[in-house]
Design a protein around this nucleic acid. Structure first.
Lengths: 137, 137
DNA sequence: GTAATACCTCTAGTAACTAGAGCTACAAGA
DNA sequence: TCTTGTAGCTCTAGTTACTAGAGGTATTAC
């Protein structure tokens, strides 16, 4: 059994965040010590690691909740988990594509000559005028 | 002079968002009609377009506020605007790099065989175990 | 036994909006 | 001129995924 602080160190999830996950129902209400402090076992550690990793991969709390619920019914087909991973992959790809357009645009803006004063600043001009953009966004 | 609805149509910024920007001090308090409705002129339209474009490029409200403040002092050197654009470019590049790692990982997870039940689901396994990852995140 | 550290709950704050309630203004047609 | 429909007003609260702080209690080490 370990305390919330130890769990935090082991998983890299901050203490208030662990309490937040408990409140949101992502992890079960922890057992308590005689003095009302949370106590965790190996299973609790594993569930939190799962959540941590899924968050690192950018899944939303809602998506993770779906997966957690799924894993409570191990006899069901895992089509749903696959679909979720795939959907998320598509959304990550879309975000990358969008950011790459922004990158081009910012690189262009940043590369404009600095001719001195804000009054004629190319960066500010470029930000004011979308029609100067080379790509759509 | 146009109404908030017309301004919204022209710029593509939603009405509550315009009021929000006003509240945040990004745009000046608009003039009002006899009946207390907001009225905008060309200058107001241009400022909002500036903000819209900068937001589209992913700059934060705080960064935009800096640029707006800058543009109120046209005699200053525009080094600061350039620096801001460059800093933002770097952060966009960092985000892209991070997302690309996630993409690899999700593609790997998504491509795992579906062998039937959640109890042995590879997707859920992969999400639970960071050590299986091919890249760091 | 005492002091330092860790833990508890609760409320409120963050960014950048968005939604809704309850009310008023304006523009166009009869 | 009256009415009706659309547009606008303010204010409060909700969203996501936490984070910070106040004020108090447990646990641990010496």
């Amino acid at each position: 059994m370990f305390s919330i602080g130890q769990l935090s160190t082991k998983t890299g999830v901050k203490i208030p965040t662990i309490r937040y996950y408990e409140q949101m129902g992502l992890i079960e209400n922890a057992g308590r010590s005689a003095g009302n402090q949370r106590r965790y076992d190996q299973a609790g550690l594993e569930r939190l690691s799962f959540i941590r990793h899924a968050r690192d991969l950018g899944l939303s709390i809602e998506h993770i909740r779906e997966l957690v619920d799924l894993s409570r019914h191990p006899e069901q087909p895992c089509t749903h988990a696959h679909a979720l991973a795939e959907r998320h992959l598509l959304s990550v790809r879309a975000r990358i594509a969008k950011l790459q357009k922004l990158e081009q645009e910012l690189a262009r803006i940043s590369g404009l000559p600095d001719d001195g004063q804000v009054g004629s600043c190319n960066v500010i001009q470029a930000l004011a005028d979308h029609s100067l953009c080379k790509t759509s966004h």
